[in-house]
Design a binder for these strands. Structure first.
Length: 503
RNA sequence: CGGGAUGUGGCUCAGCCUGGUUAGAGCGCUGCACUGGGGGUGCAGAGGUCGCAAGUUCGAAUCUUGUCAUCCCGACCA
């Protein structure tokens, strides 16, 4: 017998969190690195998860009146130059296409031949190309609002990448809307951040805080950026979704003008909002444990996996029993749809097969063998709990929907508890420094969390934040009306912000 | 772009300092047997022109130079 490790994932979260994260992705078969630097291959298990996220989000977008469309991958370089802040924010990370044809070179390889008159950039985000299109579509107030979303890939040539959290190419959706009034555009911005919060909480079982970004953290070109911020298990913050009120900045840059009811020519008001495959990273770091990935049932590609246990002479009987069990379970519903049940009948060792599914995060495992058949029972393991239990078969079938619901809820509660335990209110600089400084500087332990602090202005605390590698995550929208004094400068301050180390 | 390191079967690496027969290990993979409710055991097997190029040498994975790539630390990051 080879000795089995105590945990399926090594190192553990406490030992080396970043490495643990990479290992979970590998063990759960979600993605792997590709030959292209910074780009990843999303494997079927990871992609099914993304598809489930897409479906849920897409339904929510449609329910709030949006339609899907598709705009080009390439954007003329000149388009990017139109909005000054936007250029500054994205120019450095753009991939540029300068040629359109390859021909053989003398060394037997290939070289680019036809140079483009105007270079094209690969979209890092689509405000400019979509805005240029909208300028043609919008003539009258009767053309508004335009409520469109696109599912797409974008490229940002980042210096340092991490799977799902920051990759050179990633998948996302970007909503782009145009409105006749600022009020309406602001409502849209708020509506969509609420959609994201709803999705994070109810589908991902991930608690989030809605808030506004400070000037320094805003989307380039935006008047206001709203975000949802989540706490990962290493207590660092992750921006999980953003919704931008762009004012008239982009409509002025791109000439999105309409004639109003009274006959005047006016610039339109625009918004944009997006979430990306980063959400998969968020899911991993919110729920997974030292045995691998943990999937919230509402997004799990498979709810229940049945593992037959048999010897050669009992195989036929066991298989018949579990096929019947599978069909009964599939006839049950969870979250308004049939329960997703699979049988894993591969010729592998039982233990190894079980761990395969543990590491991939399947919410419920059923091990079924001759002993269970005799008792008309199943051996049931919940991914959110360490021990498996024997359970009456009929009881399992009739309660499977509520069981999945319990798992979904327990994951949310656990994440919420972590966030509560590591959110503190801080009123002075000494406590602030202490909170964000590891006890062991050489190999920093997991420390910090969310610090709620009043602060007066961004510039005066910039140096302190840089020193501690802390950022202002957001100014929370709710329960934030009590004035106080700035934790660092002592000046009067109207609101609190969440301070945290971040991804 | 600065600083550091690494390129050896599918993966992780040893060997290099102190050149010398057919280049090793673990994991993985294939087959067979025994197994089978915490990720097994045994036996047999497949798989590598040691990143690339030049040089030194009777002889280079090993020494020298160049080159390419990747990783880590900085700077940067909706």
């Amino acid at each position: 017998m080879a000795k089995a490790p105590k945990t399926a994932i090594s190192p553990t979260r406490a030992d080396d969190y970043p490495e643990w994260y990479q290992q979970v992705i590998k063990a759960a078969d979600l993605a792997e690195n590709s030959p292209v630097r910074g780009c990843m291959v999303i494997k079927p298990w990871g992609y099914q998860l993304w598809e489930n996220m897409q479906r849920a989000l897409d339904d929510m977008f449609k329910a709030t009146g949006h339609q899907n469309a598709y705009f080009p991958l390439f954007i003329p370089m000149s388009f990017l130059e139109k909005e000054a802040e936007h250029v500054e924010g994205f120019a450095k990370e753009c991939a540029v296409v300068t040629h359109h044809r390859l021909e053989p070179d003398p060394e037997g390889g290939l070289r680019p031949a036809g140079q483009l008159e105007e270079p094209l950039i690969v979209r890092p985000t689509s405000e400019t190309i979509i805005g240029a299109t909208y300028a043609k579509w919008v003539q009258s107030y009767r053309d508004l609002p335009i409520l469109i979303n696109q599912w797409a890939n974008v490229v940002r040539w980042e210096m340092r990448t991490r799977m799902f959290l920051r990759t050179a190419e990633f998948l996302w959706q970007e909503g782009h809307t145009v409105h006749a009034t600022d009020t309406e555009a602001i409502e849209e911005t708020e509506r969509m951040i609420n959609v994201y919060a709803d999705f994070a909480r109810n589908w991902m079982a991930m608690p989030v805080t809605i808030g506004a970004k400070t000037a320094g953290e805003r989307f380039p070109g935006a008047i206001e950026t709203l975000s949802i911020e989540a706490m990962m298990q290493d207590r660092k913050a992750l921006q999980a979704g953003t919704s931008h009120f762009l004012g008239q900045n982009f409509s002025k840059a791109q000439d999105i003008v309409f004639q109003s009811e009274s006959g005047s020519r006016e610039y339109a008001w625009t918004t944009s909002w997006g979430v990306s495959t980063r959400l998969v990273g968020a899911l991993i770091m919110t729920h997974s444990d030292d045995d691998g990935f943990v999937l919230p049932p509402k997004l799990a590609p498979t709810h229940v996996v049945i593992l037959p246990i048999y010897k050669d002479d009992s195989r036929a009987a066991v298989m018949e029993y579990i096929h019947a069990l599978r069909d009964e379970l599939r006839a049950q519903s969870y979250d308004g749809a049939p329960v997703r049940v699979e049988i894993d009948d591969r010729d592998m060792r039982g233990g190894e097969k079980k761990w395969h599914h543990v590491k991939r995060g399947v919410p419920i495992r059923l091990e079924v063998g001759p002993k269970d058949m005799e008792k008309n029972s199943v051996f049931m393991g919940r991914r959110d709990q360490p021990k498996s239990v024997g359970m009456d078969r009929n009881e399992l079938v009739s309660t499977i929907g509520s069981l999945l619901g319990q798992i979904q809820q327990s994951l949310y509660d656990r994440a919420d508890q972590l966030r509560r335990d590591n959110t503190v209110t801080i009123t002075n600089e000494a406590d602030f420094r202490d909170f964000f400084t590891p006890k062991n500087p050489d190999t920093p332990e997991i420390h910090g969390g969310f610090a709620l602090c009043h602060f007066a202005d961004e510039a005066s605390i910039d140096a302190l934040l840089k020193e501690l590698k802390v950022t202002i995550r957001c100014v929370p929208s709710e329960n934030n009306d009590t004035p106080g004094t700035c934790f660092a400068t002592g000046k009067p301050a109207a609101k609190q912000a969440i301070f945290a180390k971040a991804y």
